[in-house]
Simulated assay, not measured.
Amino acid sequence: MESVHVWGILITSFCTALGALPVLLIRNLSHKGKDSLLAFTAGIMVAASTYGLIPSALKLSNLYVLVIGILIGTFVLLLLEIVVPHHDLDNTSQQAGSASILLFLVAMSLHNIPEGLSVGMSYASEYKDLGPIVSFAIGLQNVPEGFLVALFLMLQQVRRWKTLLYASLTGLIEFIASLAGVYFGGSFEGVIPYGLAFSAGAMLFIVYKELIPESHGDGNERASTLAFIIGFLTMIVLTSILR
């Protein structure tokens, strides 16, 4: 495996821990600030899906594969939400115990597995420019995702250094999955577009089911809408510049 692949995968996974760092500095986060961050995250994830993952999946396959992959990603996240007890960010600080925290971390880790496989398989693809594009798209959305993981844990009264550790562990899962994707991607190259579409479907599910409703629940719709658009444009601009 080429060293550039290892570094690209490592940086992508490290973005989760990078996103968790600002939580160490937060003392009091207002409803408006939280809603804006959630909406900004939603914008990045939508752009990563529609401007990065979906076009890449279409480039490697066809519309049928894209639809199947997105639906599988959606239904897996739907099933996971049914199986794993769901808690809103504002209502868990005194209710959720260690079991709920563990389930939350398992859910995020499972979400990172197909993302990691997509990154690794993209680097293993015969399309040399695909790996960096997919790696950047997923890495950028890993930053706000890491922030949300750390924010959730902080609201559970978890110590700040542990929030950083646990958020980093979810990124480690993605790193391991990426390495697996590199090694098996050459043998199962046909799986790559399914993995890309799977990640897109999972992201879109999280955005529509969790982030957008949560960011519009406290009367901050205008600020959240603006933050969503800024996040969306930020992802598109950065992806275009670094292509």
Rank of each mutant, 00 (worst) to 15 (best):
I70M: 15
F147G: 10
E214Y: 01
L38H: 07
H87E: 14
A202M: 14
M235R: 08
L117Q: 03
S13W: 02
F40V: 10
Y183R: 01
L172H: 00
S168D: 06
N28K: 14
L37Y: 06
P114C: 03
I212Q: 11
P55Y: 07
H111C: 09
F152A: 05
G97W: 01
G97I: 02
P193W: 03
S125E: 07
M108C: 10
R159N: 08
Y166S: 09
M1R: 04
L140Q: 04
E189K: 09
H87G: 03
Y208P: 02
E174Q: 12
V65M: 07
V143A: 11
N62S: 13
D90H: 12
S49V: 10
P213M: 06
F136T: 09
F184C: 03
F188H: 13
V67L: 15
I68D: 01
I26E: 02
E81P: 07
A227L: 09
A202H: 06
A99P: 00
I192E: 13
L10I: 15
V182P: 05
S168M: 12
A96H: 11
P144S: 14
I138P: 00
M108T: 14
F232K: 12
F175H: 03
Y51C: 01
M235P: 04
S100E: 15
N112G: 10
L117H: 06
I138A: 03
L37S: 13
Y123E: 06
L103N: 13
Y51K: 11
G116K: 04
L130N: 06
E214P: 03
L58W: 10
G185Y: 05
S36D: 07
L155P: 00
T74S: 14
M108E: 06
I68T: 14
